[in-house]
Write a protein that binds this DNA or RNA. Structure first.
Lengths: 155, 155
DNA sequence: ACCTAGTTCTTGACGTGTCATCTATCTAGT
DNA sequence: ACTAGATAGATGACACGTCAAGAACTAGGT
């Protein structure tokens, strides 16, 4: 009917679409499951995990953004919402008057500690249980390689 | 400092995170590129591609939602926004008083035909160029297998 | 004909993400 | 000290996605 739209070969299209579709399904499943079991969004979870990886659960905005590979303003909005729910707090920075710290609160720590185990279980159930160790390694290697190249030339 | 959060083995964690990170980067790159070059969002693009695959560019909401694997209400919101921009139109359904059709407009057709070639080129540049044919096949197969299993048990 | 249950799509509220823009502060060069 | 430019973060506008609830209609049993 309409052959004017250039596209990929049918094999490329099939594989590429499957890949994209998998990601959509994984993130929507994981997000819904996390929300239902813990009242945390995927975004909350990512921020809180990053904060538990850091001394005193306290880190500059900038560094946190780099750590989880988010845009600055995205993080700023997210932190504002999380402060309202007492998951994190904002602290002024003495050394640099422009800067600020994000600190995990005790409530935030409780939330992430309660959320993590069932979430990990879900990651296994929806993903890890369906791939072999070798396949996972292959996926990881390919992913890492492409991520590195994308980080190099941000064309 | 804090060992109470259960997590994955370090290999699992590394590979799983790389996989997730790759998807995030791909979708954000592709989305930004599409928006910049065509003024279409990824969501617009997906809907328009699905409409060009169908006779007369005309399909029931329900079927379209199933085709692109979206929730009904997500599609409804998206179509409302696209109607405002004259990319698609809504038509009543004679056979079923509840139902409705989505139809691509001529403006919508022009938009997708202009957007597709550069978008495909970008997909190659950010993804396909970085994997071998064999790797792509592997990715596709693994993805398809997991998608199928997730579709089976929606636990 | 009626009533109940299911289907199809819509809507409002709300959290999320991007972009452009703004303010405050720091740094470097003079 | 002064000033220009860079940097840190906040903010407003707007698109996107989910959830829960609702409106309109259909279908199937009585």
């Amino acid at each position: 009917m309409d052959d004017t739209v250039q596209w990929l070969s049918s094999e490329e299209q099939r594989d590429w679409r499957a890949f994209i579709r998998l990601h959509q399904k994984l993130t929507s499943r994981l997000g819904a499951d996390l929300q239902a079991k813990s009242g945390l969004s995927g975004a909350d979870f990512e921020v809180l995990v990053a904060l538990t990886d850091v001394p005193e659960g306290r880190v500059r905005f900038q560094e946190l953004a780099r750590e989880i590979d988010w845009e600055q303003s995205r993080l700023s909005h997210q932190i504002r919402r999380m402060i309202k729910r007492d998951l994190v707090a904002r602290e002024e920075c003495a050394e640099d008057g422009r800067g600020a710290f994000v600190v995990i609160t005790s409530h935030g720590r409780e939330a992430i500690e309660a959320a993590a185990p069932p979430h990990v279980e879900t990651v296994r159930r929806v993903f890890l249980d369906h791939v072999t160790t070798a396949e996972l390694r292959t996926l990881g290697q390919i992913s890492q390689r492409i991520v590195d190249r994308l980080d190099q030339d941000r064309s």
